[in-house]
Amino acid sequence: MRKKIRLMVTSASAIAIVAVMGITTNIAIADDKAASSSLEEGKKLAFDRKKGNCLACHMIQGGDMAGTIGPPLIAMKSRFKRDALIAQISEPRDKNPNTIMPPFGTHSVMSPKEIELVTDYILTL
């Protein structure tokens, strides 16, 4: 009887562990999905002529007919920390008062949330 109970407890734990693991895995997949869909959203904003329109001036892998006014957006993670890139997109005049780059944040071309989405996408380049 004692043995039987122990077996039951063990099985219950095993089931519990499997269940927990299963849930964790599901959460992880959900996180991945959210991340990739927000990256997609960021890319869309970056290419949208009414929003980021980054392609007007910058070469971006996967974008057609890119402009040549600004530097190509490559190896971005090695060039910018996330906060620095958000700042550069929001108010590029901090770094260069005469820049041709629009102040996307200060002039409300994009919302703070949209700038974060674009930033996270640009950092994957």
Partner: peptide, 11 residues
Amino acid sequence: CHVYYAGQNIR
């Protein structure tokens, strides 16, 4: 556009 970046491509 027409002095400093003349000759560059916009798209």
